[in-house]
Design a binder for these strands. Structure first.
Lengths: 136, 136
DNA sequence: CTGGATCCTGTTTGATACTG
DNA sequence: CAGTATCAAACAGGATCCAG
């Protein structure tokens, strides 16, 4: 560490002016995939079981739901509680860190809603000006 | 999912009353890819040319930079200005909407920095408890 | 019910070579 | 400098079958 600007050694508040990558990639690799955000949003409303999650997130396959919750569990964003009953019962619930992530997701949703129209028209205009460009 | 079923509507934790997907997918498809955020962060500091961008985003290939800026241009997040000189000069600059996106990116970076340690240790712990699971 | 294991497909990305 | 074109590798995701 060579930055001694404020004399603080371990607690840099945010400064994206120095490095392009401020660790954003870590978050995006986590929530940027196809299903994680949807699962987190559903779990924001309370504990869910496997089937409940799958029903709540239409279109997700068994395989992808398993992979998604495993990754979220690995990152400490949710807990997985197995009840050794028959048939088996597994409960998924957000951790405090998982709940804090929902605030970020909220910000994402807000920005999305605020600009979706502008983006849609920008796309339409661009596609009109650049026919057959292959960009999507 | 939200209406007509058993009333577990435990309050407005997240205001996604109608759909689990509030349009978040639109944003994530846009900025969730490997390079867009890095390009946007670099452009947040001002106008850049093609080579400048490529130098500022280490590891990006010519091809991916081209694709990335084209998509961002299509979505109205940046402008591409061609100067018919020799050699050619192309300037990229964020639009107002692109700048507003940087605020969201900042929120992402904030959350990331705030929780990166907790996530790292959670991963380490999980990996220790689940050897050879193949999850990453 | 909760997954693990396999196979298969489309998309994304990187490397390389070439152009105006 | 600023791309385009092409090929191949890597990966994510879906479908299906099977097990505890």
């Amino acid at each position: 560490m060579s930055v001694g600007h404020t004399g603080i050694t371990t607690g840099p508040v945010v400064s994206c002016e120095e490095h392009v990558d401020c660790g954003i990639r870590d978050v995006l690799d986590r929530i940027g995939d196809k299903w994680s955000v949807l699962v987190v949003v559903e779990l924001a409303q309370g504990m869910r079981r496997f089937r409940g999650l799958q029903r709540a997130v239409p279109g997700i396959s068994q395989r992808m739901l398993t992979l998604t919750v495993r990754r979220l569990e690995r990152d400490g964003l949710l807990t997985r509680t197995v009840h050794p009953t028959v048939p088996p019962q597994v409960e998924y619930e957000l951790t405090p860190m998982g709940h804090s992530l929902t605030h970020l997701v909220r910000a994402l949703a807000d920005w999305s809603l605020e600009h979706r129209d502008a983006i849609a028209s920008a796309r339409q205009e661009w596609d009109g000006a650049n026919p057959g460009s292959g960009i999507r």
